[in-house]
Design a protein around this nucleic acid. Structure first.
Lengths: 136, 136
DNA sequence: TTAAACCTTATAGTTAACTCTAGGTCAAGG
DNA sequence: CCTTGACCTAGAGTTAACTATAAGGTTTAA
């Protein structure tokens, strides 16, 4: 079964070695084993777990909250409900973020149109008497 | 024409007074006028401009880069191209972010299903011999 | 066998974006 | 007139998430 050194794992996950050690220090990687001399050995399953951590980070979850999830995983079946609830909450978060981004994109699109028009006219003044336009 | 005090503006934009003063200090609000005694007076158009600033922030743009845009706005028609290019680039950014979020949502959805199933079974072991499942 | 390229820990520094405090000014109501 | 509350500036403090350094141990290839 393939294993990874810290730099190989970092490479695999597009993280730095510093970041992985930082995560470990913050208690996010209790599952990563060590050699007799203290060197971290990342298993395939550790890489997968780190992908979940990266996924939670992508939802805007702070590291301290991700640690709660990791702790729950270590505690076993008694925390299944908490973990389920957490993912349901994350789902709602992500959906809200997507909604927000959609609105942002609409405004950006409008600005692209605004500046394209101004650029074609050579001046922003073209919009000065157009009341439909939201703002500069 | 309606105007706003700094706290009214903060309220309108769901920001704090501190944040608005911070933005001003960073050069994001050169258009906000002052009374003879130095008190900020926000016009309707200033609120709109701040909404654009918030929109750019929502795309992940750092304040220093937003300042470039504000500077370009002050410089007039000679910077129309830069401003257009900036919004086109922002559009691409937001689209990439949405793509990323979609992938995140898929993983989260999978986790919701995983924990729902485990919860119904009363144990996570239910997934131990299911090779389709990605990871804990 | 020695040097390069890893690894370790502990701890300090960085960056962005606020967030707050201190000390003072200003405008309106009693 | 005086007090109260909102405003002002300058500058210090906070937080999260890295990012880097120092001092040293381990492994591997020439």
């Amino acid at each position: 079964m393939k294993t990874y050194s810290i730099s190989e794992a970092a490479n695999e996950l597009n993280l730095t070695v510093y970041t992985l050690r930082y995560y470990d220090k913050e208690g996010l990687l209790p599952f990563v084993e060590r050699t007799a001399s203290g060197i971290r050995v990342f298993k395939e399953s550790d890489i997968s777990a780190l992908k979940i951590i990266e996924c939670l980070k992508a939802t805007g979850m702070p590291i301290k909250e991700i640690k709660h999830f990791i702790d729950w995983c270590s505690e076993g079946d008694s925390t299944l409900q908490q973990r389920y609830d957490m993912f349901v909450e994350r789902k709602a978060m992500v959906e809200a973020q997507m909604e927000e981004l959609k609105k942002t994109l609409e405004l950006i699109d409008h600005k692209c149109f605004y500046y394209k028009t101004a650029l074609d006219a050579g001046t922003e003044d073209i919009h000065k008497n157009n009341k439909i336009v939201i703002n500069n």
